[in-house]
Amino acid sequence: MARLLVAFLVGAGFSLGLGISEMTQPQTIIQFLDLGAASWSYKLLVVMFAAVTTYGLLLKLMLRRAKPVLAPRYMIPTGRELTKPLILGSAVFGVGWGLSGLCPGPALSTLNTGAARPLLFIATMTLGMWLQGRYTQAQEARQARAARQDNANPNAQAA
């Protein structure tokens, strides 16, 4: 129960930070991506720089302790692979981010304060996630089927 409460409060704090730095305002994001405009603002970079340095410096301190507070050990993925889906997905994400000035965190953060905008965004975001999952599953099933067929009939390729 303590774990859940802590996670809830951490989420609230993270979200409050997004609000203070105005990352929840599409205007802030668009003003940065709109290079060369008179209204261009580098605020997004300031926020990202502050967040990344804070995270990076505290990470060093954190790792001095052998294990996390509420779990037996750290499970930090190392050496994520550079794959085609990662590249393609990131670019697709970027286009959506630029079009709306919204990404998942800020959209959820403003859910109850800017209702119509985030609601519509989150609804279609969920649809996008679902479709991506369906597509991946279908692809994996196809690959598994093809592998089974190859095993059953090793000479199929030659013919």
């Binding site: 997905g89 990404c103 998942p104 975001m125 649809l127």
Partner: peptide, 14 residues
């Protein structure tokens, strides 16, 4: 459109 792209892209990119 943007929401859809963000959702699809985020899951694809992990």
């Amino acid at each position: 459109g943007a929401g859809f792209l963000v959702g699809y892209g985020a899951r694809l990119a992990g």
